[in-house]
Design a binder for these strands. Structure first.
Lengths: 152, 152
DNA sequence: GTTGACTCCGTACCTTCATACGGAGTTTAG
DNA sequence: CTAAACTCCGTATGAAGGTACGGAGTCAAC
């Protein structure tokens, strides 16, 4: 039997050794005890599964903090499928928002690109013009905080 | 005439004082000289325009590093509209990629959500099941680097 | 002429997710 | 037995884009 050292666990889980240590520091996985009579820590299969869970969830856009919560739910005997579902829905909505935001950006870029001649001097470039203050809000009256109303 | 101190410039540009200092450190904007006979630095209108440019570009998804390049282009008399256009196109493609990635995630989440009963114990939750290694690649033979082929 | 609000400046801190380093100690192949 | 490879542990670094702090110095109003 090969002993499951940290590098073997990392290999099985498809991550680097440093990543496991990082997860341990973050409290996402538990660090096994050191053998009584000196030697290397031995990692249980459970840890490998746990790391795979973490990576799967990351691919779905969950942050390590959120994954920590999912893992806690998993350990909670009173936890309900509805909890997990709700989180998945929240994450989906979040992703949806991000997509919408990026689509706005994409649209704006498309407009700039099609309006730009693509040749000639920069001062005729509509992209640069747009970026340089066009709709300057003209002195928004934000002066140093309490001094502003004064006649200085 | 009110003197354009850093906080007034910040107010006009719609950013915080610390943000201006940060941009100065990053070399995105130039720090005005201190008056000869002591006092506060006076910011030209140019700086306010420049900060607005930065923020506009940021909203289009450009990083500060990229914005620095755009600003250099702007200052370059030999710069061509085509340069800017090419950058905009590259950025749009980048945004497109991100959207595609997020859409994949969204789809995966949607599938998980619709497969989940939404009630009942966690061990019947298809989401948790999916996250927990289902398709375990079973011992991918990644052992400590050179020692792996040995019969240990 | 004092007080309160700012400026100035460097440095430290924040978040996220790791990766890298250095100098122990340990293990194992040969 | 020895040397290579690995573990252990703390600390440092990276990008990105700021925010916060602390102790000067300055300025402006009353």
């Amino acid at each position: 039997m090969t002993t499951m050292t940290i590098s073997r666990a990392a290999g099985k889980a498809g991550v680097g050794v440093e990543t496991i240590r990082f997860y341990e520091r973050k409290g996402l996985i538990e660090q096994p005890r050191k053998p009584q009579d000196a030697g290397f820590r031995v990692y249980p299969e459970e840890t490998v599964h746990r790391i795979r869970f973490i990576r799967q969830a990351q691919e779905l856009g969950f942050s390590l903090k959120e994954i920590d919560e999912l893992l806690s739910l998993r350990a909670d005997p009173g936890a309900d499928s509805a909890d997990v579902r709700a989180r998945a829905i929240a994450k989906r909505d979040e992703v949806e928002q991000k997509i919408a935001h990026l689509q706005d950006i994409q649209l704006a870029l498309d407009e700039l690109i099609s309006a730009c001649p693509g040749k000639g001097a920069l001062h005729e470039c509509s992209i640069m013009e747009t970026l340089s203050d066009v709709g300057t809000p003209e002195d928004v009256a934000v002066s140093p905080k309490k001094r502003k109303a004064r006649n200085d």
